[in-house]
Amino acid sequence: MKKILGKSRIILALSALLMIGAFFVPIWEIMMWAPQYPEWLHMYIWLDDITGDVAIINGLNHYIGMKHIKVEMFPEFKIMPTIMMGVIAFGLLMALIGRRIAIWAYLLVLIAAGTAGLVDFYLWSYDYGHNLDPSAAIKVPGMSYQPPLLGSKELLNFIAYSGPATGGWIMAVSGLMVIGTLVYEYRRKSKSIAL
């Protein structure tokens, strides 16, 4: 079994511990701009909550028959903190094991969790943007209002933007730390062979 260096184990542990920060900041943000909202409308998604200008966005979206966004519509919020804690614990465990295979396992868990999050977000946003109340006041033929998964998109008079918030960036840095450790360990190995 390929043992890794002590400093690699420390970085792995730090990457896991860093993600504790994601409990205290939003992980994702959706922003909306329209001429009459020059200050942008913001919606922040946390591990277990939605905050920001949700009431204003709901008020606007009801004209086109979109559902009211509220915390209860996301059962995910009940399990996401637990999953997050699991990922952190798994990361610490892998640091303890301290083998190359453990880095791989940790990285795969991270990617799986991230991908699952994005897929879940996409499926919700598809339903939110397409499943419209047929009695809405404004019906534009052929128009749906799914927010972008990532980046920006024009939706009627709004420009909508979706992207990671601080918590998302923390997770990204954690992921990069794990990838970096993996790369370092492989390069160290190949160097030692060359010697």
């Binding site: 991270l110 969790a113 991230g114 991908t115 990532l150 980046g151 990671p164 998302g168 990204a172 992921g175």
Partner: peptide, 12 residues
């Protein structure tokens, strides 16, 4: 997630 972040960062 890291990949997603990279894509986002590259988009400005």
């Amino acid at each position: 997630m890291a990949a997603a972040a990279l894509v986002s960062a590259s988009m400005g």
